[in-house]
Design a protein around this nucleic acid. Structure first.
Lengths: 320, 320
DNA sequence: TTGTAAGCGTTATCAT
DNA sequence: ATGATAACGCTTACAA
């Protein structure tokens, strides 16, 4: 009963007599034996069967929904997920990615926060697939899975302009540059479609001044010709709006990017999307990239859709 | 320049001349060389430097906050975290735990969902620490980290009785048996302290009847002598209460177990706790158990505290 | 159907 | 300060 025979029992080989197999399985159970995947992976070219996932802000449930989707999809293909966090410290990104690469993860999925991912270029060329989530990588030919941010806000704004709104504010809590810029662009684009070309008075973005987003909401509404509607650029801004205005405010229309808990209880209309699908799509990119290491980067765009709950379907208050 | 010399550069050995070290580091950078942790771990007794975390319900943000705390604490000690999910399928638990053990995780942390974890007993005896979260294991001498559920609801009820409430309802969405029983026990205990010995008319628990929790909330309030206050047993029940009653309902007092997003906007008083601390505590149990494999199981209890936001500080409406 | 030898990349031991 | 050798537990190639 050599090691090789035992190995055959566990690697799905058929060349084992039923009797031998049974005896081996018995002994294994008795000794709590379990094949050592470390050794197996080492033998198989020194590459593990885990995929590394680097994410930044652990307090944002968004990323965990992504992680959940990714884990499920990977598990169906015999891969596991190693999760690490950078706590939004750009300097940590390269270090934790390095740790994962040293663990010989099969692929690397990351939410980029550093301003440059070129440090991954050599690894990628050596055959480790890299997929970014939520935004594209900088200086790296990686696959990516991002939301259709631009179309998301554009759709929200269009729904409002169709109701007659023209003075529509855009308020966003500090967010990363990319999603921020895209969502803002969609907002402006949809306004331009109805002839509004200057919305600067209604935009309240990442406040360098350190003002809170709640203050920004109140501020944008406090002007001679106040907006009749508000679009929030992310769920943190939506929460700020709820806090600033109180739950029941029916003289103002608003739509938020990102769905959130109890938004239905508030009648809060939002631009939603399938968060877990982002993770599943990333996992699929990993699998396809492993099958076909060459080829140009693939960029997947996850669609958004408007969820009408009341707050976004109100026409402008008497004025017009 | 033998393999051993290169190894010395990376395992923190001092017996390398500055010159050799420099040459090796140069070559490593040029060739994108990185020590293979799989091989290292194999050499070190075939045990990896990852800790496995098995969780059930991926849609519950609670577990991800736990995961976040755990990951941070482990990372500080050079360990990584492999995350897997069972999707609340008890039958999956043993399978995914087995996968992790085959990967030779240094320890196993799990949120038990199966009715029996005895299948882990041999592994634990062989030296793999096992820590359960949120509830104790069944038939397994594992360490555990749980909330002080009983004291949590007791404190909530006491705050209400102090205001004069006596008819206090307890509503809970389906939850696992253990936390459920503990929270209910705390509720009854605190009621007994003020002489209320039969609360059965005010308890609406896991409804086998398939009624929704929202219906249960309305139902418990719809009786001849209705409760003047409600305690919800988990965040899902709190959400149901908000949906059933609407955001502004100030003729009823209520306190919910588990904090939730925008609870402050609702003025919803809750029994809160440090979710990430649960994960950190689990990581610390792992580390201590690795240092001292023997010894009786240690059970850590995470304290809860009442967060007053208005809804729980209202005295009974005129009746009394 | 089963076994032998070699090697995956690292490190402990024991030279030099 | 550096290197040769063997070994961690597995699997591929090649016998038997």
């Amino acid at each position: 009963m050599s090691a090789k025979t035992v190995s055959r029992v566990y690697d799905g080989s058929t060349n084992v007599s039923p009797d031998t197999r049974r005896r081996i399985e018995e002994a294994a159970a008795r000794l709590s034996f379990r094949p050592n995947l470390l050794a197996r992976d080492l033998r198989h070219g020194g590459v593990s069967s885990a995929v590394g996932f680097v994410l930044g802000d652990l307090t944002n449930p968004f990323y965990f929904q992504v992680a959940a989707g990714m884990e499920r999809e990977l598990a169906q293909h015999g891969l596991t997920m190693v999760l690490t966090a950078t706590e939004d410290d750009p300097a940590e990104e390269e270090r934790v990615a390095g740790t994962l690469l040293a663990q010989r993860v099969r692929a690397l999925v990351l939410v980029p926060i550093a301003q440059d991912q070129s440090y991954l270029e050599s690894e990628r060329r050596l055959g480790t697939p890299v997929v970014t989530i939520d935004r594209p990588a900088h200086n790296l030919l990686a696959d990516s899975v991002v939301l259709d941010n631009r179309e998301g806000t554009a759709e929200a704004v269009r729904a409002l302009t169709r109701l007659g709104h023209r003075r529509i504010a855009f308020v966003c809590s500090p967010a990363d540059l990319y999603t921020h810029a895209e969502r803002l662009a969609g907002y402006r684009e949809a306004l331009r479609e109805v002839g509004v070309t200057d919305s600067s008075a209604w935009e309240r973005l990442d406040d360098a001044g350190g003002r809170s987003t709640e203050a920004a909401v109140l501020d944008v509404l406090d002007q001679p010709d106040p907006p009749t509607a508000v679009v929030t650029g992310n769920n943190r801004a939506s929460a700020a709006l709820v806090r600033a205005l109180g739950p029941a405010r029916d003289d103002l229309a608003y739509v938020g990017f990102d769905d959130f808990d109890l938004a239905d209880a508030f009648g809060f209309s939002v631009v939603a999307y399938d968060t877990r699908e982002i993770g599943r799509a990333a996992a699929r990119r990993v699998l396809e990239r492993l099958a076909d290491p060459q080829g140009a980067p693939v960029h997947v765009r996850i669609p958004t859709h408007l969820v009408a709950r009341g707050s976004g379907e109100r026409p402008p208050a008497r004025s017009s």
